[in-house]
Write a protein that binds this DNA or RNA. Structure first.
Lengths: 120, 120
DNA sequence: CTGTATCCTTCTAGATACTG
DNA sequence: CAGTATCTAGAAGGATACAG
């Protein structure tokens, strides 16, 4: 499966970052990886009820191939797998935090505007 | 037209930021708005040859309704329109810069890895 | 439980044409 | 030139089934 392709000047750094952070379910996944050191497939799935099994697997696969998370497979039955951020992946945390901060600002501003139009 | 919806906890700030920055052509558009104070439709279109007329109009419309750019319409024939970042839109620049910085780091790392596998 | 493949529906975005 | 509407091909993603 191809991932969404953003278009910019060739090799545009902003695009590269977006490729890794954005994607239908990636920011929720990032949320969990930043909150919990180690994540498991089933656990993520329970916490992301609207994300299909297929999509979760695909998104994790992309993050893994991007080198920001790594997988440990335990050869047991039933299978068990650990996912965690790589050291490289952790370098993205400050970027995500800055996006989070701005998003909070944006949401507050939006709420204020909505209240104004509804007359509250 | 509906925009792509990212999924996270309700009102997740990271999602809000992604909604505005990402989108098929938005980062190129941001690139031009950060570079040039004022942009025109036709000028953007010439600089984004692969972006269809329709998509450019849609993306600009979204950015405008998000309050990060504003449009000035000159009532002349043929029509002429100015687009520029709002003061609010400018608050996003540091976030984009931090994404740009990480993306540069990512790209360099990727090039280094690719060279290793091809034996250079 | 984790992971992949298939089918099928829904959505996205290009091409085109038309308006002011 | 700027902006919108329609039509259509192709991509994305859910449901399902199956394998290790």
């Amino acid at each position: 499966m191809k991932r969404q392709v953003y278009n910019c000047q060739a090799g545009c750094p902003v695009e590269s970052t977006l490729q890794i952070i954005s994607g239908k379910w990636k920011s929720v996944i990032w949320y969990h990886f930043i909150k919990n050191d180690v994540c498991h497939f089933g656990e993520l799935q329970r916490n992301m009820k609207d994300c299909s099994h297929r999509m979760l697997a695909l998104q994790l696969k992309e993050l893994e191939s991007d080198g920001v998370i790594e997988k440990t497979i335990y050869p047991v039955m039933p299978p068990k797998t650990d996912y965690k951020l790589t050291a490289f992946g952790e370098t993205l945390i400050p970027v995500i935090k800055s996006m989070e901060e701005w998003g909070t600002y944006y949401n507050q501003r939006k709420i204020a505007k909505d209240n104004m139009t509804t007359g509250n």
